[in-house]
């Protein structure tokens, strides 16, 4: 696995801790949802950044009480085609207001970067190292978007109505 953040390959600062393993002191950790829910109180009062790996078949609403304590949430795409985590990401960002790192893990290819960024992800565990350099170009592929999403870009509909004073955009 290679990690892309801000368009660059980066080292993973987080330690992935197994459910029965002891927690390393102060290091940033990612724990499973199961462990998180069982030990939440202890985990959030621990020293060091806390991340949770959340499965795509559990409502993200369950995380609501803890969001302020979470530095990272990893959402999973077990297959390219399984897009549940796109909804989870938007709910975390737009409905629940999560501001920490949102990491996409699993079957992540460059052709999803655009969608992932729009859905609110900012950390990408890519499958192919070769896809990392394509990040900037993939994300910049579309200069027009048709719908509002977690990235805050204005939809064509809103841009049109904003430029309504200027009227008659160039037709084809």
């Amino acid at each position: 696995m290679q990690l892309v953040e801000n368009g660059k390959l980066v080292e993973d600062r987080y330690v992935h801790v197994d459910d029965d393993a002891p927690l390393p002191d102060r290091l940033p950790v990612i724990v499973s949802a199961k462990r998180f829910l069982a030990e939440a109180d202890a985990l959030v009062s621990r020293d060091g950044s806390l991340g949770v790996s959340w499965p795509n078949d559990r409502r993200v609403n369950e995380l609501k009480p803890w969001l302020g304590h979470l530095a990272l949430i990893a959402l999973n795409f077990p297959k390219f085609r399984d897009g549940r985590a796109y909804s989870q990401a938007r709910q975390l960002r737009e409905t629940l207001g999560f501001r920490g790192t949102l990491r996409a893990t699993g079957d992540i290819l460059r052709d999803q970067f655009g969608f992932l960024v729009r859905a609110g992800f900012d950390s990408f565990a890519v499958k192919k190292t070769a896809d990392a350099p394509a990040f900037a170009a993939s994300v910049a592929r579309f200069s027009v978007v048709y719908q509002p999403s977690a990235d805050g870009r204005l939809s064509a509909l809103r841009r049109r109505s904003q430029s309504a004073g200027a009227k008659t955009p160039e037709t084809v």
Binding site: G83, S87, Y146, Q147
Partner: peptide, 16 residues
């Protein structure tokens, strides 16, 4: 047309 635009390349609903 309004709905067409809204769902075109929708970041959330392209892998349902």
């Amino acid at each position: 047309e309004l709905i067409r635009q809204h769902v075109t390349l929708h970041p959330e609903f392209s892998f349902m």
